[in-house]
């Protein structure tokens, strides 16, 4: 039986909203069928079947009111993958094994979608998630980057503090996404390091940290790249005094997002940067300094952009939809 190849699979999670709906709407308008796959609902609600024999293989996904073969999928939007959400009734001694096996199954299942266009390919996303690699490649394509030290050596951290004249921030390469206590969660944002903090720097032996020179800010930029198109939102640093270190921190009043035009040379470097990673999508953070220099901070290959679409009416969802069904993409 011939199956029409008119499905775009949206890989996300059950808590996702707004951006996922905007992309689904944009895809529908372009005449394809968006299908949402909430990864945290596998294996309890999403059912996967992968069947192999000597002549062929076929894979199906059943979730909610749909059942599709992966042969129907022409493109995949790789937005988020969350861990399985398993019933509290499951015997606790088997929980870890069930999660591990489910993740391995899901990871293997993606192979059945190898003929589809991905935004973006999982291997490329993982490659781009290396933040030290990001800094190296950013520098190689001509972006300014903050002087940076990553170390577990106390003496080096103290030396670096003086090299940057005591203007230093710290952060981690990864996020603390899981609760460290039953009823509360801890988060670590980019934080200012004071000299007295470094009296305890010997404790770096238990876990390294990233240290960077603190860059003076005129504006903080969220730059969204979609298959050659560039969308920019800016926050004025004088509006969000409390956020002069990290605007992403909850409770910080950031003021409104504003339009911002990147210079042609920065756009050229941005395209070279994305080309080096082979990515069609990325959410990048830059600082515009008071003297007008653009300083690269990081890229998140699956970063947020909904606030720019909503507040600035930037057509990012439409651009993603177009990239998904474009012959040139992928």
């Amino acid at each position: 039986m011939h199956l029409s190849r008119d499905v775009v699979l949206l890989i996300t999670h059950s808590g996702d909203f707004f951006t996922i709906d905007r992309v689904a709407q944009a895809l529908s308008k372009k005449g394809v069928k968006p299908i949402r796959l909430d990864t945290d609902k596998f294996p309890q609600q999403v059912q996967l079947v992968a069947h192999f024999d000597e002549s062929r293989s076929y894979h199906t996904i059943e979730y909610g009111n749909y059942s599709i073969s992966t042969e129907q999928v022409q493109a995949v939007w790789m937005r988020r993958i969350w861990e399985p959400e398993l019933s509290s009734q499951l015997a606790s001694q088997f929980r870890e094994a069930c999660i591990r096996e489910s993740k391995a199954t899901l990871n293997g299942f993606w192979d059945s979608l190898k003929e589809a266009r991905w935004i973006d390919d999982l291997a490329r996303i993982n490659y781009a998630n290396n933040k030290l690699r990001q800094l190296r490649i950013a520098s190689e394509v001509g972006f300014m980057i903050p002087r940076t030290l990553v170390t577990n050596k106390a003496e080096s951290a103290r030396e670096f503090f003086h090299q940057v004249n005591g203007k230093m921030v710290s952060k981690l390469l990864t996020t603390l996404s899981h609760s460290m206590e039953a009823n509360s969660s801890f988060f670590l944002y980019t934080s200012i390091v004071k000299e007295e903090d470094l009296q305890d720097a010997e404790s770096l032996r238990y876990c390294p940290m990233v240290f960077q020179e603190q860059i003076l800010k005129q504006r903080e930029l969220r730059v969204v790249y979609v298959n050659g198109n560039v969308f920019v939102g800016a926050l004025n640093a004088d509006v969000y005094t409390a956020a002069k270190v990290d605007w992403r921190k909850p409770g910080v009043e950031v003021g409104g997002w504003q339009h911002h035009q990147l210079p042609d040379e920065i756009v050229r470097r941005l395209k070279a940067f994305m080309g080096r990673f082979g990515l069609l999508f990325g959410a990048l953070d830059f600082i515009l300094t008071p003297s007008g220099e653009y300083v690269f901070l990081e890229i998140n290959p699956v970063g947020e952009w909904g606030m720019l679409e909503k507040d600035l009416d930037l057509p990012i969802a439409s651009a993603i939809a177009l990239a998904l069904i474009s012959e040139k993409a992928g």
Binding site: S170, F186, A201, S203, L204, Y206, M209
Partner: peptide, 8 residues
């Protein structure tokens, strides 16, 4: 505690 704990 690791060094980063002071910034949590």
């Amino acid at each position: 505690l690791p060094f980063f704990a002071r910034f949590l």
